[in-house]
Design a protein around this nucleic acid. Structure first.
Lengths: 128, 128
DNA sequence: AATCAAATTAGAATAATTCCAATTACAACT
DNA sequence: AGTTGTAATTGGAATTATTCTAATTTGATT
């Protein structure tokens, strides 16, 4: 991670490292508020603004991903491999559905000619 | 539309009708603010709160769809047939990509066994 | 015409996020 | 080691989309 930041002329501060490591610890999808709570166990004085700053920086460096479900608070995760999300309407659980190359080709096959895709978001709602 | 509302015990008021017809007029994806501006040409005294109320009611009745891109203001459209969205990062244009049954089966084939889908959101980002 | 629930309205409240100005931290020079 | 300059952090204010609230209006039904 330090490498990636330094390459962009950004400092791997303890706040940034801690936010990043906190996201690695668990494979869930915490909000900025939840991340603040977790990070404060290690850095009790970190501010919410800094958490937002760190998350933005890490996302800009493609070290983490920001995920939005409708207009609810943004969530963040360190799973960088291409995946879709499944939200269970009973439990509220968010599942990562990792996508094979085949899956990705299927997705792209939906596009008419001449559409160049940089990125996509795919979210399912339902029950498990 | 009146039918659908009445069936649910809701009144087809002139505000609701006007919001609905405004969405039918153009096949774009206006925000509540933009809808307010358009609707005010016909009902100059309608309030933003009412526009929000009408949109919520119409969406609850499945007469329109609410669409969210990341955390930007919600957008609304009257295209009810299953479709994905493509956002052009150059122009900001939002394209509807209507999905065939085949496309939908492809999408669902991504899911592991035991996942029951009620709905999905698929958005592509790229250039045309 | 009187009644009553539903809908509309203006403005206040909320909540997530961003902005701002002041402080702090740190790397690079002397 | 001390100084300097830039970047990062911080707390709180500001912003923005949306929801809430309480008062008024509407319109169907008695």
């Amino acid at each position: 991670m330090d490498r990636t930041l330094l390459k962009k002329g950004l400092r791997p501060t303890k706040q940034r490292s801690c936010v990043y490591e906190t996201l690695l610890e668990r494979k869930d999808h915490p909000t900025a508020d939840e991340i603040l709570l977790r990070v404060r166990k290690k850095l009790p004085t970190i501010s919410l603004a800094t958490v937002y700053n760190c998350l933005e920086t890490l996302a800009d460096c493609a070290l983490i991903r920001q995920v939005n479900f409708d207009r609810s608070p943004s969530r963040f995760c360190a799973n960088l491999s291409p995946h879709a999300h499944f939200i269970c309407s009973r439990t509220g659980e968010i599942h990562d559905l990792n996508l094979s190359n085949k899956d990705i080709l299927k997705l792209k096959s939906i596009l008419p000619n001449g559409f160049q895709v940089d990125d996509f978001d795919l979210t399912f709602n339902g029950t498990t």
